[in-house]
Simulated scan of single mutants.
Amino acid sequence: MISADIRPYRPEDRDALYDICMRTGAAGGDVRGVYRDQTLLPDIFAGPYATLEPDLAFVLDDGGRAVGYVLGTSDTARFARDFRDKWLPTVAAQHPLPGGEPGTPDAVMTAFLHRPEVMVTPALADYPAHLHISLLPGYQGRGYGRTLLATLFAALDKAGVKRVHLVMSSANTGARAFYDRIGFHQISIPAPEELTFLGRSTTA
């Protein structure tokens, strides 16, 4: 029987976080064959959160290593500033900004890395926090995702943050059903069809 426990992130979890991010980065599926640069997505969606806001980083530990995580920020606007000022200088040389119009998955995501301000959407001002959650396939559908999110929600509520949002692939119908079950609702804002914005209170 698979069992695991939730605990705060530790710096030694970094490699596991990066691995989980790549194994689940395509609507829950593996993207290691999609991107040439195997640290690009984690340097956008995992590393900066664990580094800049470790108090809002929690992992699912199977007794040997992290097999899932939830990462968040309590203030998206501040996080975007910190991303540019504190995080981007540490990874920019490894992921140089491509010239011209981005034409590959790597180029598109590298452009995103260099423009962290795009994560700030005025229409989401009432949902200042945001999050990313990923679990390896063997740990999905066992209640761990719900517990990881409850852990993050409690930490956000303790910090005085009352609402949180996330951005997901509209094609990931399984994840959407999960989020609906735990109280998320769709936020109607101008956005590409392939993206869905969801929000909820950090309390029940």
Score class of each variant (00 low, 15 high):
7 R>S: 12
70 V>L: 10
171 A>N: 12
164 V>F: 05
63 G>W: 08
93 A>N: 09
22 M>A: 03
98 P>N: 01
75 D>W: 15
31 V>P: 03
32 R>C: 14
133 I>C: 14
118 V>S: 06
19 D>Q: 09
175 A>T: 14
27 A>I: 14
151 T>C: 13
157 D>M: 03
108 V>Q: 13
28 G>P: 05
73 T>C: 02
165 H>V: 06
1 M>A: 07
85 D>I: 11
26 A>N: 13
65 R>M: 13
109 M>I: 06
145 G>D: 10
57 A>P: 04
86 K>Y: 05
142 R>C: 13
185 H>A: 14
101 E>D: 12
159 A>V: 14
134 S>F: 08
96 P>D: 11
141 G>A: 12
63 G>D: 07
179 Y>C: 08
94 Q>I: 07
197 F>Q: 00
6 I>G: 00
76 T>G: 00
85 D>P: 06
172 N>C: 08
35 Y>S: 04
204 A>D: 15
100 G>M: 13
12 E>V: 12
148 L>F: 09
134 S>A: 12
182 I>L: 14
46 A>P: 12
179 Y>I: 12
116 P>H: 00
5 D>H: 15
204 A>G: 15
115 R>K: 15
101 E>H: 11
135 L>R: 00
149 L>T: 14
175 A>L: 13
29 G>P: 05
9 Y>N: 05
73 T>P: 01
118 V>I: 11
29 G>M: 10
90 T>C: 08
86 K>C: 05
148 L>I: 12
115 R>H: 15
121 T>M: 01
117 E>H: 10
190 P>A: 03
112 F>Y: 10
120 V>S: 02
5 D>N: 15
103 G>C: 11
5 D>C: 15
1 M>C: 07
161 V>A: 12
127 Y>C: 00
93 A>W: 09
172 N>I: 08
11 P>Y: 07
32 R>H: 14
200 R>H: 09
76 T>Y: 00
52 L>H: 02
150 A>G: 09
161 V>P: 08
80 A>S: 04
34 V>R: 05
17 L>Q: 01
18 Y>Q: 07
76 T>A: 01
48 P>G: 03
170 S>R: 07
11 P>I: 08
118 V>C: 06
80 A>E: 02
196 T>C: 01
33 G>R: 09
44 I>H: 02
37 D>F: 04
52 L>C: 04
8 P>D: 09
182 I>V: 15
179 Y>V: 11
24 T>P: 02
114 H>E: 08
39 T>W: 03
107 A>C: 09
119 M>Q: 09
177 A>I: 15
151 T>R: 11
97 L>Q: 14
92 A>F: 11
23 R>V: 05
66 A>K: 00
196 T>A: 01
139 Y>F: 11
200 R>P: 04
17 L>C: 03
51 T>F: 03
159 A>G: 13
89 P>G: 07
181 R>K: 15
21 C>S: 06
69 Y>R: 01
28 G>S: 07
11 P>Q: 06
28 G>I: 06
18 Y>R: 06
103 G>W: 13
130 H>V: 04
120 V>K: 01
73 T>A: 01
200 R>N: 08
197 F>D: 00
49 Y>A: 00
50 A>M: 11
43 D>Q: 14
122 P>K: 01
169 S>Y: 13
3 S>Q: 10
51 T>G: 02
113 L>A: 08
187 I>S: 00
55 D>E: 12
44 I>Q: 02
96 P>Q: 10
